[in-house]
Simulated assay, not measured.
Amino acid sequence: MAHVKIYSSDFCPYCHRAKALLRARGVTEWEEIKVDGRPEVRQEMARLAGRSTVPQIFINGQHVGGCDDLHALDARGGLEPLLRGPSPA
Rank of each mutant, 00 (worst) to 15 (best):
I33F: 09
Y7K: 14
R84C: 13
P39A: 10
R76L: 12
R51H: 06
S8I: 08
G65D: 04
V41S: 12
K34L: 15
L48W: 01
Y14N: 01
I59V: 15
L48C: 06
V41E: 12
R23Y: 08
C12S: 00
R23A: 10
V35R: 07
E40K: 02
H71A: 05
L82W: 06
F11E: 13
G77S: 00
E32T: 13
C12N: 01
G61F: 09
R42E: 10
G61W: 10
L83D: 01
P13S: 10
A2Q: 06
P88A: 15
L83S: 01
G77H: 03
G78Q: 02
R47V: 13
T28W: 07
A89Y: 09
S9V: 08
M45F: 02
G78P: 00
S9M: 10
D74F: 05
D36W: 05
H3K: 14
V64N: 09
D69M: 13
A2F: 08
Q62Y: 09
F58V: 15
D69T: 12
P55F: 03
D36H: 06
A89F: 12
V27H: 03
P39M: 11
E80R: 07
D36I: 06
G37K: 07
E80T: 05
V27P: 00
H3I: 06
M1Y: 10
A72T: 14
A72V: 09
R25L: 00
Q56T: 05
L79E: 05
G66N: 06
G61P: 11
W30C: 06
C15F: 00
L48G: 03
I33R: 12
H16P: 03
E31R: 09
Q43T: 11
R42W: 06
G85P: 08
P55N: 07
G37C: 05
P81R: 08
R84N: 14
V64M: 12
V41P: 13
I6D: 00
S8R: 14
K34Y: 13
A18P: 01
I6E: 04
V35H: 03
E80G: 06
A20H: 04
A75W: 11
L73M: 03
H63E: 11
K5Y: 01
A46V: 04
R84F: 13
P55Y: 05
R84S: 14
R47Q: 14
D36L: 03
A2G: 07
P55T: 04
R76N: 14
R51V: 04
D10C: 11
C12E: 01
C67W: 00
R23H: 05
L70P: 01
